[in-house]
Structures are given as structure tokens and as C-alpha cells.
Amino acid sequence: MDMEMLKNLSNAFGPSGFEEDVIRAAARYLTPYQIENDAMNNLYARMSGTDSEKPVIQLDAHLDECGFMVQCIHDNGCLGIIMLGGFHLTNIPAHSVVIRTRSGNLIKGIITSKPVHFMTEDERNSQNLDIGQIYVDIGAINSREVEEAGISIGDPMIPDVSFEYHEQQGVCFGKAFDNRAGCACIIDTMDKLREEKNRLAVQVVGAFAAQEEVGMRGAEVTSQIVKPDLAIVFEGSPSDDFFFSPGIAQGKMKGGVQIRLMDKSYISNPAFTEFAVNTAKKFGIRFQETVRRGGSTNAGRISLTGKAVPVLVLGVPSRYVHTHYNYCAREDLEAAVELASKVILELDNDAIRHICRQDILDKVLEER
């Protein structure tokens, strides 16, 4: 995988509802394809010259990242904020952010944290925080200075983090790997399949969805537009190897691509996951199967499209998602791309029919 591409995707400014910069970053790597966007900031990439009669497989990843929005401007110059996405409140204070004004200027700020010198004993020991009591400080001393800086209510902000690739360890450091890692996987997968498009049993459409972090809203639109028969969802999944024992962890960094069997939003299609597992074994692709007690992906929306869509969720284990800073491994990114491309290459009409459950009643109907 091109680390410069992942860098540009990761660094792009794109909290939920403000994904334009990510669209532009992705589009630079999608020049071989027909691309378009819609009014919600969803981005579509299609291979030209493919047989329109073939079933459609949608490659999904979401563009947006967790961020914040200016909710109000206080008299003392601090900004009240709301969250765009699911941060845990204890992970927010004492980090820097970048605010984008309506004119497009980027302004740095610090998320406030009360110095220990001023805390009561109860405050020092408490983990109870309220987003209404967490502010952003841009160095202003009153609301007039904030307004002179061009900041308005409703301006978006993101974590202030720059991408790095640590080549010796094969590890990426940055922000928004949930889910710029998935966006990079769509691009790489389409590139791997481009020269093979005429022998594929499916049409491949990349769909980069907006607003996943606030309720999988973009995928509800993309799936209506693409109308897929099958889908592969790429996700920057939470790595759990620091929190569970080796025998229990299911999202180990450098453990291979994650094949998700269940989360709060969907139950996987057993035939599709079995096909993926067999394909991974056939080609020696490292993988780890995952049953999630929590969390969700765009599969929850895509799987409910039309008469139901079989969805395969492939995760890139990423440490500390929904915080400022993430790690992920290059080898896991490449395993996700390799498995997705091999699955698509291995699909034939019989496999598609089986995955779509079109053969369940065959024996019953034959006996009539």
C-alpha cells in the first residue's frame, strides 16, 4: 500500500458532515475511474466498460472521522463544544484540535483541562465529566477576539495529529484510521482488480460514505444509489490486543485482516464469511475472526437494502480508535486488500447464488 496515499487520507480534515477535504484527497487516487459525489458528501467510483448485467458488489468505507463542533462562544473566549461521533469524555481533555472557519482558515486550540492545582479532592478522584463543562481555548481573552479570528457557532474541529509511517516497525501513526484505513483499502482493491474487470463475475463500485460516526447515515444513501447484490465493508476496527489475553483478543495488530461475524448492527452472512475464510486459507492470507459485543459498521445499513444484501466486513485492527492518536500495521492493511481482491476474483455465478441464499429452496422445490 502507498503510505503517501494513507498519509493524505489520514491528514485530511473530515469530521462527520464536513468530509469535502477527504473526498478531494481520495479523488486524486481515483483517476482511472468514473467518480461523482452527492449532496451528502458521499463519493462513488465506478470502473468504466464493465458489463451492466453482472451483479454489483459495493466496496464501502466511511470518509468521516470523530470530531467536534463549536456549540457556543463564552464571554471569556472559550468555545463550548459538542461531539461529532463517539469519543469517551475522559479521552478528550488536554489535547489540541484544529478548527476550520467558514472562510476555510485553520485555527489551533487546546481542549481545556483544569490544572491539578485548582482541583478539589473529589475532582481529582472523579471520572465523571460533562461535555458541557469541556471547552476549547484558542488563546483568546474574550468573545470579541474569537469572532475576530473568524470562528463562528457551528464551525467543525478535528484532532490535531499528523501522519507518520515508521518503516522499521511497519507501523502507521496518525488520526482517523477509523476509517481512512478503509478508504485506502477501497482504492487499493479497485486498483488490483482494474486489469481483471472483464473476467470478474461482478461489477465493482467503490462507495465512500459520509456521516458513519453519527449513525451510518451516508451508507443508507450509497446503498440506495449503488443497489448492491453483495458488499464488502472495510473498517478501521478497534484493536483489542492490549486489553485481552492472546487467546481472547480478536483484533490483534499484525494479526491479519479481521473478518467480523457479528456486532451490534448486524449478523454476518454465514455463506459469505465461509467463502472469505476458505479464500484466505487457499491463498495463505492471515486473518482473525471476530465477534464484537459492541460497535457497528455500515454493514448494518447496507445489509438492509432492497431484499437484503450479504455483507462481508473486513477490519484493519487499529489501536485507540475514537481518540486523537492511532496505530495500525501496514501488513494488516495489505492483508485486507489482498483478501477482498481475492474474494472478488474467486466469485462465480454459483458462489454468488449460494451467498445470496438463492439455492436454499432448491431441494424442496425439486421434491414437489
Rank of each mutant, 00 (worst) to 15 (best):
F163H: 03
I151P: 03
I360N: 01
G295V: 06
E367N: 04
V146G: 02
A176H: 08
G247C: 12
A176M: 03
E331A: 12
L30P: 05
V316H: 03
G109Y: 03
D191I: 03
P159I: 10
N11W: 10
E195D: 08
N198P: 14
R301D: 05
R144F: 12
E164K: 08
E334T: 14
E213K: 04
R260F: 00
P159S: 10
M1V: 12
A149M: 14
G295L: 13
K227S: 11
Q34A: 12
I23M: 15
E53G: 15
F242Y: 01
V98W: 00
I186E: 03
S113F: 08
C185I: 07
K114L: 11
L129N: 09
I232R: 01
D359W: 04
Q224M: 10
Y325N: 13
N278V: 02
K342W: 06
G206R: 01
V321I: 15
A149Q: 14
V22R: 02
F234E: 10
T189K: 06
L106A: 10
T112P: 10
G14F: 03
I259P: 01
C172Q: 01
L43T: 09
H88Y: 14
R353Y: 06
I73K: 03
D160E: 07
R102L: 12
E121L: 13
E20C: 09
R301N: 06
C185N: 12
G300K: 11
E220L: 13
A39M: 10
I225M: 10
K227R: 14
V56R: 12
P32F: 03
V257G: 04
V226S: 05
G86C: 08
D350W: 03
R319G: 13
E367Y: 12
I99F: 09
P115T: 12
L333R: 06
D38L: 11
R217E: 00
S303R: 14
T273K: 08
I187L: 01
V116Y: 01
C328W: 14
T305F: 14
A219Y: 04
F163N: 02
I73P: 02
F244M: 14
R330A: 08
H324S: 11
V171D: 05
H95I: 04
M40F: 15
V202I: 01
S143Q: 09
A176Y: 06
V116S: 13
K252Q: 13
A219D: 00
H88W: 01
N41E: 14
E53A: 12
G255I: 05
G150M: 10
Y29D: 06
N105Q: 07
T222W: 02
A39D: 15
C78K: 11
R28D: 15
E53N: 13
Q34W: 00
D155F: 07
C78I: 14
R194L: 11
N42R: 00
G255H: 09
R144M: 13
C328R: 07
L106M: 15
G206C: 02
R357N: 15
G251M: 06
E65R: 01
E167R: 15
G284I: 07
Q211M: 09
T323C: 13
N278Y: 00
